[in-house]
């Protein structure tokens, strides 16, 4: 889910080419969730192989990543580690929502309402251990590096940006900005056309770039204040305060300076100070690791074909052109961008 900071940050529409030659640390859980939610048939059934095994994540990783490397982007995927205890509640709620969506999906399917079925189905996807293992296996075969985060993947991706090891973080969620990534790219792994929810209409989805500095300056706040605003809005670690949207939270923190001072002026709001301290440290000093290497290797075509075509019955005619993009990209990963000069 993440924190809804969309209204506070200016967004710059971009194309893949703008990031050619750049290393982008991609929030793996976020994009795989996206693949599982979006890559489905018309009635909402995920892509499956002959034995009924879900393959939406493999399809997404192969085709969307191939488009990135074709444009000269150097992706590195960052996987989540064990979630923080405070996130457990969020996770439990998500599970409940998914169970409800699952029931709605079956109902809609039985009633023959395909549009509702697809919409509900997209909310039921779960990241199983199997999906994660298979995703990593495919990345390895494709020669695309991944990093295992000690806890939040977005925190690790943001840390890699801060270290200068990656140019930007890639995620749909805004949390990377809270974690201190100077640049965040959204819609990086979306298809270019996206269906509008509940309508038979499509919009063109372009990657967009968000700059932390620019957002802070525009709003006249510090990163610490941004985190305080996020706590009012609600994060993966707390529910937020009812009635506090982005604008009201911004105004309140700007008026009072910090969350503590604001709470003094609003005794009706209960927010335990330990909880505030924990969430702040989650965003400002999250657990991260320096134990990673980012290195692209040659794709292993026979392994890729084995995983996709033999084990999961992907059509070789569709896999081969995507695989060729990875093979071509080998040059690109060692190639400089003309516009760096």
């Amino acid at each position: 889910m993440g924190v809804d900071l969309g209204d506070l940050f200016p967004k710059q529409p971009c194309s893949y080419q703008d990031f050619s030659g750049r290393i982008i640390a991609i929030d793996a859980y976020n994009v795989i969730h996206q693949f599982l939610a979006i890559i489905r048939q018309r009635d909402g059934t995920p892509l499956k192989d002959a034995s009924g095994h879900i393959t939406s994540h493999l399809s997404g990783l192969l085709f969307r990543t191939s488009n990135l490397v074709e444009a000269g982007i150097r992706p590195v995927y960052v996987f989540d580690g064990p979630p923080h205890a405070l996130k457990a509640r969020t996770i439990a709620e998500r599970r409940k929502r998914k169970e409800q969506a699952e029931r709605d999906y079956q109902e809609a399917l039985a009633a023959g309402d395909l549009a509702t079925a697809k919409s509900k189905a997209s909310q039921t996807s779960r990241l199983t251990d199997e999906i994660l293992t298979e995703s990593k296996e495919l990345l390895l075969a494709l020669g695309i590096p991944f990093v295992q985060a000690p806890s939040e993947g977005e925190a690790q991706a943001s840390f890699m940006v801060q270290q200068g090891h990656a140019y930007a973080a890639g995620s749909q969620d805004f949390d990377c900005l809270l974690f201190g990534a100077s640049l965040l790219i959204r819609n990086l792994t979306s298809s270019e056309r996206r269906k509008l929810p509940g309508k038979q209409a499509y919009v063109t989805v372009l990657p967009e770039l968000l700059r932390l500095d620019q957002g802070l300056t525009t709003n006249g706040i510090t990163r610490e204040q941004l985190v305080d605003i996020a706590i009012l809005l609600g994060t993966d670690f707390n529910d937020g305060i009812k009635g506090y949207g982005p604008k009201k939270s911004l105004a309140a923190i700007k008026e009072h300076g910090s969350l503590e001072q604001m709470l003094q002026a609003h005794p009706e709001i209960t927010l335990p100070s330990e909880e505030i301290a924990t969430i702040r440290s989650m965003f400002l000093q999250p657990p991260v690791t320096t134990d990673y290497t980012i290195k692209w290797t040659s794709p292993d075509p026979s392994k890729v074909l084995q995983v996709l075509c033999e084990e999961h019955q992907f059509s070789q005619a569709r896999v081969t052109p995507a695989l060729e993009k990875f093979q071509k990209a080998e040059y690109v990963l060692k190639q400089r961008n003309l516009f760096d000069f």
Partner: peptide, 9 residues
Amino acid sequence: AVDPAHVAM
């Protein structure tokens, strides 16, 4: 013309 990877013009 510039190629999609911005390598050559």
